[in-house]
Design a protein around this nucleic acid. Sequence first.
DNA 1: TCTATGTATGTAATATCATAACACGTCAAG
DNA 2: CTTGACGTGTTATGATATTACATACATAGA
Lengths: 172, 172
Amino acid sequence: MPHDHAEACPGCADPSAAFAPHDHTHCAADVLARAEVLAGAAGARLTPVRRRVLEILLESHRAMGAYDVLNRLSAEGFGNQPPVAYRALEFLEEQGFVHRIRRLNAFAACMHPGESHAPVFLICRTCQSVAEAAGAPVRAAVEAAAAGMGFAVERTTVEALGLCPACAGAAA
Amino acid sequence: MPHDHAEACPGCADPSAAFAPHDHTHCAADVLARAEVLAGAAGARLTPVRRRVLEILLESHRAMGAYDVLNRLSAEGFGNQPPVAYRALEFLEEQGFVHRIRRLNAFAACMHPGESHAPVFLICRTCQSVAEAAGAPVRAAVEAAAAGMGFAVERTTVEALGLCPACAGAAA
DNA sequence: TCTATGTATGTAATATCATAACACGTCAAG
DNA sequence: CTTGACGTGTTATGATATTACATACATAGA
Ligand SMILES: [Zn+2]
Ligand SMILES: [Zn+2]
Ligand SMILES: [Zn+2]
Ligand SMILES: [Zn+2]
């Protein structure tokens, strides 16, 4: 995650920025730029629809349903049938640019693409914002629990529902 | 989990039994009996539909979709509309007798009702069996990651997709 | 240049999962 | 006996996701 301007870039240096006010324009532009580089390096084509879907998801630290994305796309002249959105989302997920939030049947942009990470998603039940926390220890704990039963873990889904700092403060 | 006949009861004494051959008739009967006691104690009514749904889910260490459950119910003379199944499943989930497996959009019977547990679900991608591992350390790791971002965790979803011992053995 | 090939997009149709709203029956308290 | 809570049944609809097929577009030989 650290990149050349990390000091000047709270959203990039601090994962908790998702729950705090920050220069999200920069946050989004930075992630998008990194995704373009990564896609090029992987020989994957970040076509207009795919790029636009990523941009749309990057507009906020929220998850969006496939149909919400689709509505945006069709309003902008892209196709208006579900596969248009689902295919782009699937591509972005394969590339690690987007994560699926199963609890919400929705998708959120990855805020640190390219880094190998076992994300833990923190979903605020009040403001719907979604943040990605570092999940290496969680993943290790899951592996340990699975190993005890002889189970070989391939992929994990870890999602926590609760209150983000702002909403917890407002509630109290 | 340990109960009066735990020694004679592999399925009850050993959580990894879900992935191993065992006397599942006993396994299921035992869980059902415990659920009945717990429901009584909680003042909740384990009516015929609800009880039957639990029995159906207890037939195997698998997750079933709501409509699969519904098909079984309607074949047995209960209602044949989705709310019949969803309501029973919702009740059972509230009582802690059933868990929702989000990755599969499906439901699985809880194999140790009444124990406070933060389950980790291990889902075999080959045989579709689902086991519940002890997740207290996982939960703790999630709490720790969340605390670092000021997030208050209320509920967690932890699911691992991979290969159960039998399928891993068959693959190798 | 001209195809052949793979890949991306568009569209129609359908499948799958889930809930809202209302009607009816039962039973226990008042 | 009425009322109110609860459970069940049914209709209708909404939300999410995929299959199948058609079309466009890129790029790599011939
Ligand atoms: Zn941001
Ligand atoms: Zn990520
Ligand atoms: Zn069993
Ligand atoms: Zn359980």
